[in-house]
Design a protein around this nucleic acid. Structure first.
Length: 218
DNA sequence: TGCCAGGGATTAG
DNA sequence: CTAATCCATGGC
């Protein structure tokens, strides 16, 4: 796992994630980016920022329809509007970000997973990138890359993969390195490790199963 | 033009 | 526990 990290870092450089201006903006982005490209999330967030709506109470004061209209570029507007408000309600009821800083990571994780619209990846993205907790984020790219490079089978449950990475990556600073590795995996996934792999652009093709398959078929 | 994106809830088996 | 289906927009 450290070798993968080193190669990705050498190839792409530090990614500087999460691309947001505040912890709350990270949380909003974590919901909006579900099954959607980041450029569309930016449009939705910019719209919220332009209207000074990037605060929990501001989003809660909007009707679902009004919020949906503003986040429409990010897709699933009706679904995500409800999810954003559910997250804001949890945030307000919890006492806000300062109160969350006092909570244990396991408690926060369970709380987040109980919020409507927050699944394992969204919860872990919030824990790592908004709350600076040492939790590795598993996403579709992580599964694909680790699978093609022979680290995993690919169908393992989310928790299995998360612990697999967390226990196999040696680090003195888990928050910083989990942050960087996940960001690098997404970057590599966008460039080369796609459903239809672009092996000519893949820096990992020497140990990638998809690249070997690609070579046999010319 | 069809495939895909930094998922998750719901339902059925 | 796994597998389908739905949610919607925009880039390529």
């Amino acid at each position: 796992m450290n070798r993968l990290y080193a190669r990705l870092l050498a190839a792409y450089g530090p990614q500087g994630w999460w691309p947001a201006e505040s912890p709350f903006e990270v949380m909003v982005g974590a919901i909006l980016t579900q099954n959607t490209t980041w450029v569309q999330v930016i449009r939705a967030i910019d719209r919220l920022r332009d209207e000074a709506l990037l605060a929990p109470t501001a989003l809660l004061d909007l009707s679902v329809d009004a919020l949906a209209e503003r986040i429409r570029p990010a897709g699933y507007p009706n679904v995500k509007a409800r999810r954003l408000q559910a997250l804001c309600q949890w945030l307000v009821r919890s006492g806000g970000l300062p109160a969350l800083a006092e909570c244990a990571t396991d408690t926060l994780r369970a709380d987040l997973l109980a919020v409507h619209g927050v699944g394992p990846e969204t919860a872990d993205s919030i824990l790592l990138y908004a709350l600076a907790r040492p939790v590795f984020v598993i996403d579709a790219y992580t599964r694909r890359i680790l699978s093609r490079c022979g680290h995993i089978g690919g169908r393992e449950p989310y928790e299995t993969l998360r612990r697999e990475v967390e226990s196999n990556l040696r680090t003195a600073d888990p928050v910083a390195d989990y942050n960087e590795l996940h960001a690098l995996i997404v970057q590599h996934g966008k460039i080369a490790c796609r459903p239809r792999p672009r092996c000519e652009a893949c820096i990992l093709r020497t140990d990638c199963a998809a690249a070997r398959e690609d070579q046999r078929h010319g």
